[in-house]
Amino acid sequence: MRSAFAAGLVEVAAADERIILLTADLGYTVLEPFAERFPDRFMNVGVAEQNMVGMATGLAEAGYTPYVYSIATFASMRGYEFIRNGPVLHQLPVRVVGVGGGLDYGHNGLTHYAVEDVALMRTQPDLTIVAPADPDQVRTAVPVLQQLNGPVYLRLGKESASVPGLMGRFRLGGVEAIGDGRDVVFVTLGGAAAQAVEAATLLSERGVEASVAVVSSLNPSPSDDLAVLLGETELAISVEAHYVAGGVGSFAAETIAERRLACRLVRAGLRETPVGETGSRDHLYARHGLMPEQLAAAALQQFELAGR
């Protein structure tokens, strides 16, 4: 996703001179295509995320569209108050780009896991969140950001393959459905979409009709789209590499409650602080119940409870 982002940004920047890219000393071997093509519009500001966001505010007020880049934890949290009092308060087109959302940084530990960034950003009603599920969606989404005059948080995965069936579809404020099964609908955000799609495949082998609702943007709310899908099922399972509070599981719960949908919700995600246990992303996914087999089992368990 990182390389797709860099390539996409080079393309839009070629047509829009307002775009500049700032990094807080991260993105080595990723951002070079932009830096080489637009050396005057690229700047490594040093390991100083707060200053980077503050500066982006000053640059945006003067007419620029600054992209500020770091690992998702640092991009979203270190300068959070600067984001709130800068681009959000002033409604300026700063794009905060966080790479490695979720557990993508594997053995690097909690300091590198962005598992509450969506929750934090979601509370800002005028901050658009874009969290693509795969590189193809990144390619579709980056040009769409150009239409937005306000601030954006772009949450990228580190490395990820294409999500089968998604085919790069992305609509701001929309939900992209994969499959049309309604025995269970997985509601997912970001790179975890791949887990959900695989879980749906496993279930279909057991005769269960499942589909996946990929939420790739929040603010504007994709609640209308999600309500249509959840209105046609009795079981929703949210899937996210994020704490269950405040992320896409919470978003699904809000949609179900506010629309009075007759749909049971099970939330898969982190329920405890991931500390003291390192490993690959898949190891961590298994630890927190996010592997396809676990997600499929969660669905089957609900059917058993329901006596089906």
Partner: peptide, 13 residues
């Protein structure tokens, strides 16, 4: 927070 904003504004100029 102001000096960072000012630095960005000066850089923009």
């Amino acid at each position: 927070q102001g000096l960072s904003i000012g630095a960005g504004s000066a850089l923009a100029a």
